[in-house]
Design a binder for these strands. Structure first.
Length: 355
DNA sequence: AACTTTTACAACCGCATCATT
DNA sequence: AAATGATGCGGTTGTAAAAGT
C-alpha cells in the first residue's frame, strides 16, 4: 500500500515564503511550539504543506540559526567531518550550532566542493584525483636528469604532488648538489630497481602496495645511505601506507564507511598522507567509523571528532593542518583547502623555492 | 543598456526510518 | 506483524541576483 501524502496538495501554496507567512508561522510556533507539522499549517492559518512549514522553520526561521558567511573554522570543520561522514549533512550540522543541514549542503556544493575540485581533490573521497604516481619513472627521470632538478619538469603537467615525493625529491636534489658523482652511481642501481618494480607491481593494484613498499625500501638502500632516514621513512609511509609498521589506520575494508566511498578509497591508488606524528589522535578501538584512509586523518577517530568541543575546532586538526589559521579570505580558504588535504599546487615552482 | 551565463540558496520531492495503532 | 502516519534526510530544482559579454 502506498503512503498517504503528507498533506493535501490541492490549493496549497508553494514557492518562496512571504514575510506575512513567516510571521504567521513564527507567531504560531512561539505560542504553541513546533511539532505536529501535519496539523500546524491549518491551525496557523497557512495555506502550506506541513512539510514546507517544518522546512521553513528548521532551515530559516528558527531563532538559533546563525546566518551569514561561514567562518574559517566552520569550513574547516565541515571539510574534516565530511571526510569522515560523507554526505551526512545532518550529522555535520549537529556539530555546527546555528547551521542547518541544508545550509551546509548548499555551502558544500557551491563553495567547498568546487574549491576542492580546483585543487584536484575529489570532494567525495577527499583523495587527489591523480592515480598513484609512477614513482619509479619519476625518480628515474629526476635522477637521470643532468640539469638541475626542477619540480615542474619532474611532474610535467601534474600540479599535485605527494608530500612524500616532494621530500624525497628534495633529498635527492640535496644529494645531487653535495656529491653528483656518487649520486650518479646510484642512478644505475636505481634504474634496475625501477624496471623491476614496473614489471612486478602493476600500479592499478593498490593492495599490492605493501609489497611495493618493501621493494622500494630494498632497492633504495644505496640511496638511503645518503638520504635522511626520516625523509625516506616518511616518503615510504606516505606512498605505501600498508608498509608502515607504526601505521594506525584500519584496513579500509573493515571500516563502516559508506560502501561507495570505501570502494573508491580502496580501488583508487591514491597518494595518501598518513600522519605518523604520535601527538595526533589515536584511533579508538571502540570507534565504529574509522577515519577515511585517504582523508589525511588516519589517526583521527570519529569519536574524537564527534566529541570535540565546538568551541575549539582546532582540536580537530591533525598536527599537519594548522596553517592559515587566521585567514578568512577566499584565497586563504582556497590555500587552506589544499593544504588541509596535504596537496599543493606547485606546478611552476622550482625546487630551489622550496628549499 | 540589453542579453546571457553563472552563482547562491531557498524550497521541493521522494525515500527511509521510526512511532503508533 | 502489518498498516499507517509523522518526521527527518539527502538529492535536486527553481529562481533571483550577480557577473560577464
Amino acid at each position: 500500500m502506498g503512503r498517504a501524502p503528507c498533506c493535501d496538495k490541492n490549493g496549497l501554496k508553494k514557492g518562496p515564503w512571504t514575510p506575512e507567512e513567516d510571521h504567521m508561522l513564527i507567531t504560531y510556533i512561539q505560542t504553541h511550539g513546533a511539532g505536529n507539522w501535519r496539523t500546524l499549517p491549518k491551525n496557523a492559518g497557512l495555506q502550506r504543506c506541513g512539510k514546507s512549514c517544518r522546512l521553513r522553520w528548521t532551515n530559516y526561521l528558527r531563532p538559533d540559526i546563525k546566518r551569514g558567511r561561514f567562518s574559517f573554522e566552520e569550513e574547516e570543520t565541515i571539510i574534516q567531518l565530511h571526510s569522515l561522514l560523507g554526505n551526512k549533512w545532518s550529522a555535520i550540522a549537529a556539530r555546527l550550532p546555528g547551521r542547518t543541514d541544508n545550509e551546509i549542503k548548499n555551502y558544500w556544493n557551491t563553495h567547498v566542493r568546487k574549491r576542492l575540485l580546483r585543487n584536484g581533490i575529489d570532494p567525495v573521497t577527499h583523495a587527489p584525483r591523480l592515480d598513484l604516481l609512477d614513482l619509479s619513472s619519476i625518480l628515474s627521470s629526476a635522477l637521470c636528469s643532468q640539469s638541475f632538478l626542477n619540480l615542474s619538469s619532474l611532474l610535467g603537467n601534474q600540479a599535485l604532488l605527494n608530500p612524500g615525493i616532494l621530500r624525497l625529491a628534495t633529498a635527492i636534489s640535496s644529494l645531487k648538489q653535495e656529491d653528483p658523482e656518487l649520486l650518479w652511481q646510484q642512478i644505475q642501481e636505481n634504474q634496475h630497481c625501477s624496471s623491476m618494480l614496473e614489471n612486478q607491481i602493476p600500479m592499478s593494484q593498490p593492495n599490492q602496495s605493501h609489497n611495493l613498499g618493501h621493494e622500494i625500501s630494498a632497492c633504495s638502500t644505496p640511496i638511503s645511505q645518503f638520504l635522511n632516514q626520516t625523509q625516506l621513512m616518511q616518503a615510504n609511509v606516505e606512498m605505501f601506507p600498508g608498509n608502515a609498521t607504526n601505521f594506525t589506520c584500519q584496513d579500509p575494508l573493515e571500516t563502516n564507511m559508506p560502501s561507495t566511498l570505501n570502494n573508491n578509497l580502496t580501488s583508487q591508488a591514491n597518494l595518501v598522507f598518513c600522519n605518523t606524528d604520535p601527538t595526533v589522535y589515536e584511533l579508538k578501538e571502540s570507534s565504529n567509523l574509522h577515519s577515511a584512509p585517504s582523508s589525511g586523518y588516519q589517526n583521527l577517530g570519529i569519536d574524537s571528532v564527534l566529541s570535540t568541543p565546538l568551541s575549539s575546532p582546532a582540536q580537530l586538526h591533525s598536527s599537519s593542518t594548522l596553517v592559515n589559521s587566521g585567514g578568512s579570505s577566499e584565497d586563504e580558504r582556497e590555500s587552506y583547502c589544499s593544504s588541509l588535504l596535504k596537496f599543493e599546487n606547485i606546478g611552476n615552482l622550482n625546487l630551489e623555492d622550496l628549499m
